[in-house]
């Protein structure tokens, strides 16, 4: 208790609190990662713009892993609906659906609950697809081993400069739909240059997920 104020009945005191809400989420994320480690599971979370191709990329990765005899699961995070969840389930993998309702991002707490619904003892890999949003998920790691951010050329060549933080806090940066670059009159090299400057440590992958271009690079970047 700190310095006292005045009056005979009451006094004003300064109380030290030191409570960091964002740090609490980070601790819970560490706990999720430890749980995955305990089961020998590698976890990846996919962040990115709405419609940038996150779900399709995870679907393709899941199929690749299956052909190698590896077992994957996925968590679909969306504000509402189960469209992505159904897509994951159609690949014959265990999946969990998180509807955030009013929240703009997944957090470690929501993912912690989703982990309860997955057969962790039977898995090698877990993919966590965050809500399509380049702002809010930045503050809330969920406990994966690597973060992948996906953008596409259809969002314009200024997307990295407009949302720098998410690129700084990711390990792999996917620039998707490069096949549409010419039609969109967008130069993907501008996105690449901006991303490199913000995060020289990240792996940057040019991709056309629909046709599988760049998928080998992603597989190797993630160590799959």
């Amino acid at each position: 208790m700190g310095q006292a104020g005045f009056t005979s009945m009451h006094k004003v005191v300064t109380v030290e609190m030191e409570k960091d809400i964002l740090a609490e989420n980070r601790h819970l994320a560490d706990h999720n990662r430890a749980l995955l480690d305990e089961h020998g599971i590698k976890g990846f979370d996919f962040l990115g713009a709405i419609g940038s191709g996150k779900t399709l990329i995870i679907e393709k990765l899941v199929d690749r892993l299956k052909s190698k005899g590896k077992r994957a699961a996925a968590i679909a995070g969306d504000v509402s609906g189960d469209d992505d969840y159904q897509r994951f389930v159609s690949h014959g993998i265990p999946a969990a659906n998180i509807n955030t309702g009013k929240e703009c991002h997944l957090d470690a707490h929501l993912v912690d609950h989703a982990l309860d619904d997955l057969p962790l003892e039977d898995l090698d890999y877990l993919f966590i697809e965050n809500v399509g949003n380049l702002v809010c998920p930045v503050d809330f790691p969920v406990g994966s081993h690597a973060r992948v951010v996906v953008i596409s050329v259809t969002e314009g060549d200024d997307m990295v400069r407009k949302h720098p933080a998410i690129f700084a806090f990711s390990d792999v940066i996917v620039i998707n739909k490069v096949d549409l670059a010419q039609a969109m009159e967008v130069d993907p090299r501008i996105l690449e240059r901006d991303a490199k400057r913000i995060n020289p440590g990240a792996k940057i992958i040019m991709m056309d997920a629909r046709r599988g271009e760049g998928m080998d690079e992603l597989v190797s970047a993630l160590g799959l």
Binding site: K11, V12, V15, K19, D20, D139
Partner: peptide
């Protein structure tokens, strides 16, 4: 630069 910390509170308590 990643903090969001409630450092201190000033509260009225019974004396």
């Amino acid at each position: 630069g990643r903090e969001c910390t409630v450092k201190n509170l000033r509260v009225v308590v019974p004396d």
